[in-house]
């Protein structure tokens, strides 16, 4: 591999390697750039746009844009935070989200991000789409009402599980999560141990018989805000502690 270089993110100089994305470089140095459609271990696609940053002034998705030497990245500006907030609000009004009784509450990345960005209630009017629930599988429930079309399940199933259980149909606002069967998830090769089942950032794909096991107060985002593990690691690094 060719030589490493540095970039700056919000004024902080950090190392990066050729081919590394802005998001990955930032994360390695303990800078959290919010994201929903990307997770470690799968190919980034830039669908949710929540990780939008300015790189040398240009607006790009941090999860797909490769870092280049001396690149100047802005992430936490008023402008970018405002865009992120709007994007998250769009995802809320696009689906049918009821945090108060959703079993994903407290570990939902959409909800976690809304709290982190200070969203109390979306300013847009809800679209209230009609979407299908698929409870056919003995161990997995698929509730499309909560789907944010991030595609993490699709990519994980295809690339990590080697199965292609999920896909998308329709176009534009009518785009929907689909399964690799005529109708039911039960007729696909989906298994509760698939990595794809755990890849969902929201409550659209859930394992059955696990709801509400963690008491309120103990759920991941009750303990610390989304993104905190990335940032905590940075503090350790800054204080001279171990980097991982």
């Amino acid at each position: 591999m060719s030589d490493r270089f540095t970039i700056t993110v919000d004024g902080r100089e950090i190392p990066a390697a050729p081919g590394q994305t802005i998001l990955a470089a930032a994360q390695a140095s303990g800078i959290y750039i919010p994201r929903l459609c990307h997770m470690d271990g799968i190919e980034p696609v830039g669908a949710c746009r929540v990780c939008t940053v300015r790189a040398n002034g240009r607006v790009v998705a941090a999860c797909t844009q490769p870092a280049t030497a001396s690149m100047v990245v802005q992430s936490q500006t008023d402008e970018l935070v405002s865009w992120r907030r709007q994007l998250v609000e769009m995802l809320f009004v696009e689906g049918n989200h009821f945090c108060m009784f959703c079993e994903k509450s407290g570990s939902c990345e959409l909800q976690g991000l809304a709290y982190r960005l200070g969203i109390a209630a979306p300013r847009y009017e809800s679209i209230w789409p009609r979407r299908e629930v698929d409870a056919s599988h003995p161990d997995i429930i698929l509730d499309r009402n909560r789907c944010i079309l991030c595609g993490r399940c699709e990519r994980t199933s295809r690339d990590l599980d080697g199965k292609h259980v999920f896909g998308f149909v329709g176009r534009g606002i009518h785009k929907r999560l689909a399964v690799n069967a005529r109708a039911r998830l039960a007729d696909t090769g989906a298994d509760v141990t698939d990595l794809a089942i755990g890849a969902c950032p929201v409550g659209a794909i859930l394992r059955k018989n696990r709801a509400y096991r963690t008491p309120v107060g103990d759920r991941p985002f009750d303990r610390e805000p989304i993104g905190a593990p990335v940032e905590t690691r940075a503090e350790l690094t800054i204080n001279g502690g171990p980097a991982s």
């Binding site: 696009e94 176009r171 534009g172 785009k175």
Partner: peptide, 15 residues
């Protein structure tokens, strides 16, 4: 005509 891949074009245009 939005393909629906990204949030702002899929949802934003509707709003």
């Amino acid at each position: 005509e939005s393909c629906g891949f990204c949030t702002p074009c899929r949802v934003g245009t509707v709003l």
